[in-house]
Computed example of a mutant assay.
Amino acid sequence: MEILASRMLIRPAGYPESVEFYRDRIGLAVAREYGGGTVFYAGQSLIELAAHGGPSAGGSLWLQVRDVYATETELTGRGVTIARSAAEEPWGLHEMHVVDPDGVTLIFVQVPDAHPLRRDTRD
């Protein structure tokens, strides 16, 4: 399996307070904002604060793959328990969840060709 990109995904209990903390107190630059969250630059990685879903201490690791369905098959073949099978989400991404031994959720994500994350915003 080839990992194309990754980010730390945090679902805070207080979304507005967390945005203010990372943006204004820590001083991270905003990479993008969308209806349900804010993504910040963090060196060669990203930190995403998601306003949707229940709060989760410790966050999740977002791992972009080319084909999440093939990744599910590969990981199942290696004996990995799939916490949530690959499926298309309402926001257009295809996601699958695996939980590591310490309870950290690994979210494997496939970004479809027509998804806004693939849009070239240059004029």
Rank of each mutant, 00 (worst) to 15 (best):
R7L: 12
M8A: 15
L9A: 06
L9W: 03
R11H: 14
P12I: 03
P12F: 01
A13E: 14
A13F: 02
G14R: 14
G14D: 15
Y15K: 04
Y15I: 06
Y15D: 05
P16W: 00
P16V: 04
E17I: 08
S18P: 04
S18G: 05
V19L: 07
E20F: 11
E20L: 09
E20N: 13
E20M: 09
F21W: 12
F21T: 03
Y22G: 06
D24M: 08
R25V: 15
R25Y: 09
I26P: 06
G27D: 08
G27N: 09
L28M: 14
A29Y: 06
A29I: 07
A29N: 09
A31V: 09
A31F: 10
R32S: 12
R32V: 06
R32F: 11
R32K: 10
R32E: 07
R32M: 10
E33V: 13
Y34T: 10
G35K: 02
G36N: 15
G36P: 00
G36C: 08
G36V: 05
G37S: 07
T38Y: 02
T38A: 04
T38L: 00
V39Q: 07
V39S: 05
V39T: 11
F40C: 08
F40A: 10
F40W: 05
Y41D: 15
Y41L: 14
A42P: 06
Q44N: 15
Q44S: 12
Q44A: 13
L46K: 13
I47Y: 00
E48N: 11
L49R: 00
A50N: 14
A50G: 08
A50F: 10
A51V: 06
H52C: 10
H52W: 14
G53Q: 10
G53I: 09
G53W: 06
G54H: 11
G54A: 13
S56N: 13
A57H: 05
A57P: 01
G58W: 01
G59P: 07
G59F: 00
G59A: 04
S60Y: 01
L61K: 00
W62V: 05
L63H: 02
Q64A: 05
Q64S: 08
V65W: 00
V65E: 03
R66F: 05
R66A: 15
D67N: 07
D67Q: 01
Y69A: 08
A70M: 06
T71H: 07
E72V: 11
E72H: 03
T73R: 11
E74V: 12
E74A: 15
L75M: 12
L75F: 07
T76M: 04
G77M: 04
T81C: 08
T81R: 13
T81K: 11
I82M: 02
R84N: 12
R84F: 12
R84G: 15
S85T: 14
A86P: 01
A86D: 06
A87N: 10
A87Y: 00
E88Y: 02
E88N: 00
E89R: 02
E89Q: 15
P90T: 08
W91D: 07
W91P: 05
G92T: 05
L93G: 04
L93I: 03
H94A: 13
H94P: 00
E95R: 15
E95N: 08
M96K: 02
M96R: 02
M96I: 11
M96Q: 01
H97S: 11
H97R: 09
H97I: 13
H97P: 00
V99Q: 01
D100K: 10
D100M: 10
P101G: 08
P101L: 07
